[in-house]
């Protein structure tokens, strides 16, 4: 199965290195304590440049989802159908996520989700968000 990976220059950045170490961290303002995503050099809430990284609780709700049935690249032909999600984290940020291929879950907008960091290889891990209970399923 072909994984789509950010270029190595991106995987060296904290968002991805924290994930490779097994945890989802969010770019967070050290002054007002609010998180933002995607990572930014300046806090969009208080405009401080004092930005750090804090672990996310992993709790989120499902904002919306879509199921890709048409492969938009030949190397993705063996992956469809797959589910893409938008998730709203407890910390007040939105992430793009999905459901790992092969996992069967029933989705409903507004349902609670939990983060599960799935290791792809030593450099790349992805933050999936799953319904409570499903996060413990073996893949």
């Amino acid at each position: 199965m072909t994984v789509i990976r950010p270029g190595d220059e991106y995987l060296a950045q904290p968002f991805w290195t924290h994930l490779a170490n097994g945890t989802l961290h969010l770019s967070t303002c050290e002054d007002c304590n609010k998180a933002h995503h995607p990572p930014s050099p300046i806090c969009p809430h208080c405009r401080s440049f004092n930005i750090g990284w804090k672990p996310a609780s992993g709790k989120a709700t499902l904002n919306t989802y879509a199921v890709a049935r048409h492969a938009v690249h030949p190397l993705l032909a063996d992956q469809v159908p797959y589910t893409i999600t938008l998730v709203d984290l407890e910390e007040g940020v939105r992430l793009v996520s999905g459901i790992p291929n092969g996992m069967e879950v029933d989705l409903e907008i507004g349902m609670p989700l939990e983060c599960k960091v799935v290791k792809i290889d030593d450099q790349l891990s992805l933050p999936y968000f799953l319904p409570a209970g499903a996060a413990d399923q073996d893949q």
């Binding site: 789509i4 990976r5 270029g7 995607p38 190397l75 893409i84």
Partner: peptide
């Protein structure tokens, strides 16, 4: 043999492409 993404902004940026969110039509489905 690997698919690499170096797109800084949507559609199909580094934070969405690994989940297969790649083209505008998929965003519209959301």
């Amino acid at each position: 043999g690997r698919l690499i993404n170096r797109q800084p902004e949507p559609p199909g940026d580094i934070y969405s492409a690994p989940f297969g969110l790649l083209v505008p039509g998929q965003h519209h489905a959301l």
